[in-house]
Computed example of a mutant assay.
Amino acid sequence: MNDASIPILLADDDTGFCELLGEYLRGQGFAVTAVHDGQAAIAAVERGGHAALVLDVMMPKADGFQVLEKLRASHRIPVVMLTARGEDVDRIVGLELGADDYVAKPCNPRELAARLRAVLRRTQLAGAELAPLRCGDLELQPASRGVRVDGRAVDLTGAEFDVLRVLVEQAGEIVNKEELSKRALNRRLGSFDRSIDMHISRLRQKLGPHGDGSARLRSVRNRGYLYARPG
């Protein structure tokens, strides 16, 4: 992947922070455009041309959660949220609304760049293995990153798709959360990291149960999750 060809949208109302962070990311080869309120962020994404969005929670005109909720109704752009350090609730809400990853502020620019690269690898290169995956009425298309359940298209975020793909690849087997985080999110699971749990919760809501009413995604206490094969 050539970072220089990847335009990133940075949405944060702190102009000084945007200048410093934008300078660092440009030095890493990213092309950065900054906006400073929620409405401007929505308008910029809708105009297109950005490969990923770095989105601060606290902004005027529309906060980061409102922006994310609005965008997820019709856009699948990868989103890395910027949350206040120690504010677990912000991270949880962001993941519930469809964020792909998060970084706590004040953030280490190097960590943010690494998270951006990881998200972009997941969303843009995960189609290297193009054969469809099928399990019962579920079909995953890695090339287009599309998902269908009983013929019905299901709109997933990039992170949700990657979590589901790992579980379907090992359907009927338990995948522990640490392994799931490494393979799907490309990072180690922190001590209080609930990102995998949040993605699983959203997948359950979007996919629903099997046709016979049994659970597709099962949690196994102290062990992990599995995608249950249909009976």
Results as ranks from 00 to 15, higher is better:
131 A>G: 08
145 R>T: 01
117 R>D: 05
115 R>S: 03
148 R>V: 07
121 R>D: 07
129 E>P: 00
114 A>S: 13
139 E>N: 03
149 V>R: 15
115 R>F: 04
121 R>W: 03
152 R>A: 15
115 R>T: 04
112 L>E: 09
157 T>L: 05
120 L>A: 01
150 D>Y: 07
115 R>P: 00
131 A>S: 13
149 V>Q: 14
123 T>P: 01
108 N>I: 08
136 G>F: 07
151 G>N: 08
151 G>E: 07
148 R>D: 03
117 R>N: 09
109 P>M: 12
131 A>R: 14
133 L>E: 05
114 A>W: 02
132 P>M: 08
133 L>N: 02
144 S>M: 14
131 A>Y: 10
128 A>Q: 14
118 A>H: 00
114 A>Y: 03
109 P>D: 11
105 K>S: 11
142 P>N: 11
117 R>S: 11
156 L>R: 04
125 L>R: 06
141 Q>H: 11
131 A>T: 13
143 A>H: 09
146 G>H: 12
133 L>S: 02
137 D>Y: 01
140 L>Q: 06
119 V>I: 12
128 A>P: 00
144 S>D: 14
129 E>D: 14
118 A>F: 01
127 G>S: 13
110 R>P: 00
140 L>T: 08
133 L>G: 00
132 P>G: 07
113 A>Y: 03
152 R>Q: 15
117 R>V: 07
112 L>C: 08
110 R>H: 12
156 L>K: 06
136 G>S: 09
146 G>D: 14
126 A>E: 12
147 V>I: 13
134 R>H: 10
128 A>C: 09
157 T>M: 06
158 G>F: 06
117 R>I: 05
131 A>P: 02
129 E>R: 11
158 G>C: 11
133 L>W: 02
155 D>I: 10
